[in-house]
Design a protein around this nucleic acid. Sequence first.
DNA 1: GGATAGCTGTTACC
DNA 2: ACCGGTAACAGCTATCC
Length: 806
Amino acid sequence: MKINFIPLDYDYKTIGNKTYMLIYGKTSEGKTCCVIDKAVNFFYILNAENPEKMIKNIEKISQVKKAEITEKNYLEKPERAIKVFCEYNQMQEIARKIELLDKNTETRERDINQITRYILEKKIKPLVWYEIEGNIISDNELNGLANSLDVDLVIELEKIKELKEQIDFKPKILAFDIEAEEFEIGKGEILMISLVSDNIKKVLTWKYCKKAEEYVECFKNEAEMIEKFADYIKKINPDIITGYYSDGFDLPYLRVRAEKNKIDLKLGKDGSRILFSRGNLINARIKGLVHIDLLKFIETVYSQYLQSETLSLNEVSKELLGESKLEIDHNKKSGERNEEEWKDFFSYNLQDSILTYKLFQKFWPDFLEFAHIVQEPLFQLTRYGMSHLVENYIIHNLERFNEIAEKRPIHEEIAERREREKYEGAFVLQPSPGLYENLAVFDFTSYWPSIIVTYNLSLSTFLGEKKQLDSFEVPVAGKKYYFSNKTGFFSSMLKEIIILRKKYKEEYKKDEDPIKKARSNAYKLLANASYGYQGFFGARYYCPEASASATSISRDFTKKIIETINKKDYEVIYSDTDSIAFKLNKHTKQEALNFLKKLNSELPGIMELELEDFYKRGIWVTKRTGEFGAKKKYALVNFQDKIKIRGFETVRRDWCFLAREVQNNILKMILNSGKHEKALEYIKEIIKKIKQREIDKKELIIRTQLKKPLAEYKSISPHVIAAQKIKERGEPIDIGMLISYFIAETQEKKKLVREKVKLPDEKGEYNIDYYLNNQILPAVENIFQVFNINIKEIVEGKKQKKLGEF
DNA sequence: GGATAGCTGTTACC
DNA sequence: ACCGGTAACAGCTATCC
């Protein structure tokens, strides 16, 4: 039979002694389908002294299916490699035996997992439509496999062809969220579970059942509720199940409670349980049903574009959907809630799933495009960090270069790499503090990728520290690194990525299709991460020499451009890595643009400078100590009156809201008018209010993230004390939490700030001295210093003046 | 016991 | 541990006299 099929999830099983792939997906008629195919697996042997002879010995090893010589490249060099075919589960043992045959040989690609290998070889890529021909598998074939799978159709693959006309695919989504009595995994009962899918909104519960809303379904106990939850999943039969931090909370919690209630929670389409990975970062996999935890993907791919100060469901929803979580009192135990409060609790629980569902829809184009570009299945893809995304992109594109993949570093290598000294990074120009008018900012487009491409910087093109034929040198830290003139695959791929990014960005400009935006964005992220990837200890294509060369070249370029700009009677004020801010002086904007063109005509390769914007005004301040200008701190206003603030306390979440707000207002006043008088009146007013205790405590809460376990802190800072206090109350403390506190007045004179820490709901008055001298004044004094105004003297100084008068 | 250099820790910029 | 280095800054800690 012939069907149109789109793969969603990949699995493999050993039946008899053969490995079979199980590709779960959908047909164009909306049926769930599992395509069965024999798996492919092999690895390579390099450096064999006599490959022909060695093949004979390899073929004697039991379980080796076939060994052949292939002409491949390994790190650009031609190799006569031996390709050894075997079952995936035999591979490590066979590879070890082969290594014993000849100690000079090395194995490669035995660290490519079965799913990736299959996608590479059979080209059945995730989320791409195929026309598939094959036979329906009968119940008595393959150990009754077909019978054990909970899908509409099980087909053994015979022929496959990518559909020329791809069909729009909208997966069926089920979002869910649980509420439990206790925060600690499995400690308390699960009180309710909400589910949201197309036309379905449900809250399942058992603890409180009086007069609930229509969407609430009540059961006699926790066990029945959990069972019904599993039933609903089966009945709704979604393609994807999604939650927010469901890897780390909802599913682990469900597992423990199911075990406690002696329920076998078999949600996998092959009848398997939820599979939890071991290790630090737990993930929860359900075979045949793609589980996506939105939080993980947002962290790696989206957080850099978000303004939100935390990645909580509430803040992310507010920013991306314009909707919030509902509010309830989390401190109450079940028994303490009245009817109204239970109702609120149910709608709170439902709202979480609604938000998760909507966020999923928002991110769907990104999932889809990353899957197409990186060619890895959704489950894996959504959990990858940036390095994995880059690396998998590379692996799935090596074939065009006939390259054998480099191996993943082993434990010792990683340890060694992590100990390497840092290489010198980018150049940052120390600004002269001041208020400047009429500025322009130029920056290099995709600076790191364009340097890597233009100068061919990568592991396979790195030739060492000695001059060689057809090479060029890069000076790094008193040494010279040589790279090949012949373009390597890393640079080639990166160049393609940059070109594709440009293409889809322009297409998106013409037609604002979210898919095009997602595609352009995926390429952009891959390009930007490729520089960091080469310096990352876990990378297959780790090459700190390439990274160090890239930064060395970057410093040269930036400094040279600065020099050229200054020579033309412009005046460079500031520069950080790839951007240069300068005064136009007597030049017009058009002249600056012409100048930009000229600069570009002299740049090599794909390197390019562009106008970031023209600015009406900009302010740079001194460092807190010393009279030098502070780097990475400035504020600009463009000719559309849009303000851009970088580095100032305004944008730092570990300062109290008042300090941030006041500084923000002052920067705005100064940038908009070019004068300080209004700002000075304003700050005097604020200071007066603080002294008269007219400030709401809410404005004075300081929030700092807890980045490691409490016990590991060598230095006990205020937020550690605050966290201890929370712990003493019996409330949960978790790494990554934002700890809120304020600094209070104390009875006795206490020296350390931490001795004055109080939690937001603790009784106590705010410490006037602290908020004045450690929050508000530090946030504004450097700004006034630009106008030669010493704000501290003005605040305290009136007394001094009076003293002086006598 | 106070001053302070240096360290730890967080958060930003690019 | 899960892409890199540069930088500002607070507040603690060790060390000095």
